[in-house]
Write a protein that binds this DNA or RNA. Structure first.
Length: 774
DNA sequence: ACAAATACCCTTTTT
DNA sequence: GGGTATTTGT
């Protein structure tokens, strides 16, 4: 009955007419066809920007299913973000049927691993309800480790400790392996912390991001039968953005494809921008060496950008030494000149770009949704936001996690995690007294101390607070009451204290979230929060319920398609899925295409996307390339690739913008345009300088011709001796006005020539006769 | 227990 | 500068 139903073509022809081989390959170029139809054996697709790579991958999945008759559940496609996965599935479902596209596995490495681990949790000694720790959970765990070990966070800041641990994990080094090869003081110390950190996570039945990969590799190693099962399941493996895979990811892909050898890697070494996160560019460069009989296809024709934009990108990337050369070319039109914009400061920069956008929107009918602004650092978005808001232009920011980073949301989610995973100490302690319920810091501390003394977990002790020494009855009652509440919430969700399953759990997910938020007191707390008169935080909690509702709807739809006549989705399953989605959410996942709004995002987030109009802001030395990569040639090349990625996102128009002065941390600093701008061929762009500066002519004693000696500049003619609170005594060399500000070059006795803004610098005019400089 | 004050991280990029 | 975490004061 079931199989009959499944095989029946009626539904399929309803949804989409079956496409023939010809249709599937129609409009593809010769190399694209080769990439699509080479289904057996290892295949490397080196795809330049805008070369139709996504189309090739989706066509390839469709070809496998429709043409080769491969069952969709044998196909695994790994993407870099959830959003990319969703879009790819969407596109595949346009060619094959909805149901077939859903039977194929299309997801990120991390969600694949999260699911594998959940399925085989018992083999790893974990409950299926294990928690996934995000950066802030990790930080708490690291802090706890440091505290227990009595290590000063001054010398070992949690962030850098975690960075070291993450690097080790990406190289598949567990705590013991790391300790084994630690030979200096610092790494030995890290090894100790690593071990403790692992203990805390173990005890909490929790995994961090890197563990998802690490534990999967461990599972494969220790349980060859599991691996064999998965190899049979995923006979065709495709990995996108292969240039950004790290060692652990390489091992996973490699292991899955080891039996059938049908591995297809797509990517572009010139777009490798995650080296800092452990991505190993050698994975793609060595593909042909690792898979001896690999076919390599190069996609070099660009369908996205104008000739000028592509030429600029190509000229830039030629400056990198360690690369495989590609002949990028396009049949597209010549296009407009690239605009290299120089503004006075970041506010002016933002205004100018908004003005350009408005002009394009008005004169050329370019929709807001076709425009994007990229920057190196998230903090640059703020000025841009202000400028867009001023003009009433709709915009969206790729910061999906920002919502889940809010304190009230983190707390709410911590409740859910603590309920689902009864061992999750980090999340339990986060909310044990939030809102306050008479469980003071002191109570928690003594619980932890007594747990440590009797060698059990803090949670076990909290279940029997009367065993904690020196605890008054009030505190004991408060703890008992709270633990009882937790128990009650678990019952409603159909969970027991071991994270196992009970019957029940029939409430809907959003209703359940609402119930917990109301019963735990968070809602009341924020309803009465005087520091938040607009009730913004309360509204955010409401948003969380809405997103739970959204998730439940999608989930039910999916399940319905998969196992139609099976039991209704259990609350417990949905809760697990919801928490997983929250944990693995990425910034770009939140952005929606065709939303009719300007998109703001970091250069990293922009990978894989394209826009009609692109503005890159803050293209200054120290920003792009970033300060922290100035001294390392490899890192500098990665910055150049980042710039390359940004440029190649643009279809028709590209604005590369810098400001002469940028305020970072409230400190205004002079900047220099990025060296990358100088690497662009001059005939490809036109410069617009709106900084009204005199280009820093350093002639002595000559005031800028344009700048009238009015206002503040009248007080400081060239030649004036001044005293600066920090730099001491100096002589003004020249003065120039820049709109609102007045800029001066001042030669100091101690630190040499400094550019200063007279309005900001607290300069004091001194008379050399009255006060000799010593 | 709560409000206010201070201290302290932050800012390179993220699954 | 901006927000959160920790502390101090009432």
């Amino acid at each position: 009955m079931t199989s009959d139903f499944f095989d029946a073509p009626i539904e399929d022809s309803f949804e989409q007419p079956q496409q023939s081989n010809q249709d599937l390959l129609k409009g593809l170029t010769e190399p694209q066809v080769e990439a699509v139809t080479t289904t057996e054996g290892p295949l490397l697709v080196l795809a330049g920007p805008g070369s139709g790579k996504t189309r090739v991958i989706t066509s390839r999945i469709a070809y496998l299913i429709l043409e080769c008759g491969i069952p969709p559940w044998n196909v695994l496609a790994i993407t870099f973000t959830n959003k990319a996965a969703g879009e790819m599935r969407e596109r595949v479902s346009k060619v094959v049927s909805q149901r077939q596209s859903e039977a194929a596995t299309i997801c990120t490495f991390h969600s694949l691993c999260a699911r594998i681990i959940r399925q085989y949790a018992d083999k790893l000694g974990l409950p299926p309800s294990y928690s996934i720790y995000d950066t802030s959970d990790q930080k708490r765990a690291a802090k706890q480790a440091l505290e227990v070990l009595g290590i000063d966070t001054k010398n070992f800041p949690p962030a850098s400790v975690l960075n070291a641990i993450s690097n080790a994990k990406n190289e598949l080094q567990n705590a013991d392996a790391f300790a084994g090869q630690a030979d200096d003081f610092y790494s030995k110390k890290i090894a100790t912390i690593y071990k403790k950190y692992e203990q805390i996570l173990d005890q909490s039945h929790s995994l961090d991001f890197d563990d998802l990969l690490l534990k999967t590799v461990q599972l494969f190693r220790e349980h060859p039968i599991v691996l064999a099962e998965l190899q049979e399941r995923y006979q065709y493996v495709m990995i996108d953005e292969y240039q950004d895979t790290n060692h652990a990811q390489f091992m996973i892909a490699n292991a899955l494809a080891a039996r059938h050898k049908n591995i297809c890697a797509t990517g572009d070494p010139d777009q490798s921008i995650y080296g800092w996160r452990g991505a190993n560019i050698q994975n793609i460069l060595d593909f042909e060496a690792i898979y001896a009989n690999a076919t390599t296809v190069r996609l070099e024709q660009n369908y996205r950008s104008t000739k000028r934009i592509l030429a600029a990108a190509d000229a830039l990337i030629q400056n990198n030494s360690a690369r495989k050369h590609k002949d990028l070319w396009t049949d597209n039109e010549e296009g407009e000149l690239i605009e290299v914009l120089t503004s006075r400061d970041e506010r002016e920069e933002a205004r100018q770009i908004v003005q350009e956008f408005e002009k394009l929107n008005c004169d050329e009918n370019v929709a807001w949704g076709e425009m994007a602004v990229f920057y190196r650092m998230n903090s640059l978005s703020r000025v841009m936001e202000d400028a867009l808001r001023d003009r009433g232009i709709p915009y969206q920011i790729a910061r999906g996690t920002a919502f889940y980073d809010r304190k009230e949301i983190k707390d709410a989610v911590a409740y859910l995690r603590a309920i689902v995973n009864p061992a999750d100490e980090i999340n339990l302690l986060r909310i044990i007294n939030m809102p306050t319920r008479g469980i003071s810091d002191k109570t928690v501390k003594s619980a932890q101390a007594s747990a440590l003394a009797s060698n059990v977990s803090s949670i076990q002790i909290l279940m029997q607070p009367e065993l904690i020494p020196n605890l008054n009855t009030r505190a004991i009652n408060s703890v008992n009451k709270f633990m009882g509440q937790l128990h009650h919430w678990r019952e409603v969700a159909g969970l027991n204290e071991e994270g196992g399953m009970l019957t029940g759990g029939t409430m809907s997910l959003p209703d359940y979230v609402e119930l917990v938020l109301s019963e735990c007191g968070l809602q009341d707390y924020y309803r009465n929060d005087k520091s938040d008169p607009d009730g913004e935080r309360l509204a955010n909690l409401g948003e969380l319920i809405t997103s739970a509702q959204q998730f439940a709807e999608d989930y039910v739809a999916e399940i319905d398609n998969e196992i139609r006549e099976n039991a209704p989705a259990l609350l417990r399953e949905m809760l697990l899925g919801f928490l997983e989605q929250i944990a693995l959410m990425s910034d770009v996942d939140a952005i929606e295409s065709d939303q009719g709004s300007v998109t703001l995002m970091t250069l990293h987030a922009a990978k894989g996307l394209e826009f009609n109009v692109v503005a890159m802001i803050g293209v200054e030395d120290g920003m792009l390339p970033h300060d922290r990569s100035q001294n390392d040639e490899n890192e500098l090349e990665e910055e150049r690739r980042l710039c390359f990625v940004g440029i190649t996102r643009a279809q028709k128009r590209l604005i590369i913008s810098s400001a002469r002065y940028r305020t970072v941390f409230g400190q205004t600093m002079p900047t220099i345009a990025s060296r990358f701008i100088k690497e662009l061929p001059e005939e490809l762009y036109e410069s617009t300088d709106l900084s009204a500066d005199d280009f820093g002519s350093s002639s002595f004693g000559v005031a800028s011709s344009g700048g009238q000696a009015t206002g503040i500049s009248a007080k400081y003619p060239a030649g004036t001796m001044v005293r600066h609170p920090k730099f001491g005594i100096g002589r003004i060399q020249n003065v120039s006005s820049m709109g609102g500000h007045t800029r001066a070059q001042v030669a100091f006795n101690t630190v040499g020539v400094k550019p200063l803004i007279l309005e900001y610098a607290k300069l004091e005019v001194i008379n050399i006769e009255e006060e000799p400089p010593f």
